[in-house]
């Protein structure tokens, strides 16, 4: 890793890191020439692999940034406890592309479709700036990307997924909507992780949405609104408005911002509705 960094610093301009390179080939064909210099991270074994680690006394799943999307789909640990990630990874591109594309690449793309699931899972990200490795919540990283050190972009090294909260009643989902059933850029993505306490109140909730060229975000206001609430018809109607108010996506050539808002609200509220409290 250090070596990659040093090479990066030794080359003054027109340089980029590359791992799977699937996105770079797409851009090359679209007319953006490859940079003069590419620094391949592909063979840095320490950036690969999925394992449980203990960090600050907490067990977490560590996923190397170079782990392929295919491995994210099939890994038994991910499928068991963090299946939102495997579901989202399966929604990205095709099997052949997933064999090359990496989780780090998908996140560094900023609008990758795995991001909402990682946000819903409260993922942390680690990155290397040439001297040190930093760790912070993915949410913070996306909100305030680290400033390029010495003019270069830091390298994402891994993702850490905390153990998911357990509860007798929980709901989690990831859904992507595109213009075709598969192998399609998203129009809308939504993911949620939600737990209820014994009083039927929501005591843990993560809501993350994205889609198209809209950088995925967490709907923090909606989360705050829902926390401590018992789901009733009235709450559903209110949270529906709240989502539409908080999510501010852009329109593009294919759908309007209004469509994105409506679909995100529909997806989230319909899942909450499945957990409607019994009428008294």
């Amino acid at each position: 890793m250090k070596e990659a960094w040093e090479i990066m610093n030794s080359i003054s301009s027109d340089v980029s890191y590359i791992s799977g390179g699937t996105l770079m080939q797409l851009q090359r064909e679209q007319g953006t020439p490859l940079p003069e210099n590419l620094i391949s991270l592909e063979k840095i074994e320490s950036l690969r692999g999925i394992k449980k680690v203990v960090s600050n006394g907490k067990t977490m799943l560590e996923i190397g940034a170079l782990t392929t999307l295919a491995d994210c789909c099939s890994d038994p640990l991910i499928n068991q406890e963090w299946d939102l990630l495997s579901i989202s990874a399966k929604s990205v591109a095709s099997p052949a592309v997933r064999n090359r594309g990496t989780l780090g690449g998908n996140v560094s793309y900023r609008i990758g479709d795995t991001i909402p699931s990682l946000l819903a899972l409260d993922a942390e990200i680690t990155w290397f700036d040439g001297t040190e490795t930093y760790k912070e919540p993915l949410y913070d990283y996306l909100k305030n990307p680290p400033a390029p050190a010495f003019g270069n972009t830091p390298v994402i090294t891994s993702f850490l997924l905390p153990e998911t909260p357990v509860s007798t009643k929980l709901m989690s989902f990831y859904q992507k909507v595109g213009r075709r059933e598969s192998f399609i850029p998203s129009l809308v993505t939504a993911s949620a992780y939600c737990c209820w306490n014994s009083y039927n109140e929501i005591d843990y909730i993560r809501l993350a949405v994205g889609g198209g060229a809209n950088a995925p975000i967490r709907l923090k206001r909606c989360e705050r609104f829902l926390k401590g609430k018992v789901i009733t018809e009235e709450i559903l109607a209110l949270v529906y408005e709240e989502i539409i108010d908080e999510f501010k996506p852009d329109s593009d050539m294919f759908v309007s911002a209004s469509y994105r808002k409506t679909v995100v609200a529909n997806l989230i509220v319909s899942k909450l509705e499945d957990n409607l409290a019994e009428s008294p």
Binding site: M1, E3, A4, I7, I11, I18, L34, P35, E36, N37, L38, I39, S40, L41, E42, K43, I44, E45, S46
Partner: peptide, 14 residues
Amino acid sequence: MGESRAVTVNQPTE
């Protein structure tokens, strides 16, 4: 996959 290192790839400018 023996080696574990970064590799510089140069484009065929010359």
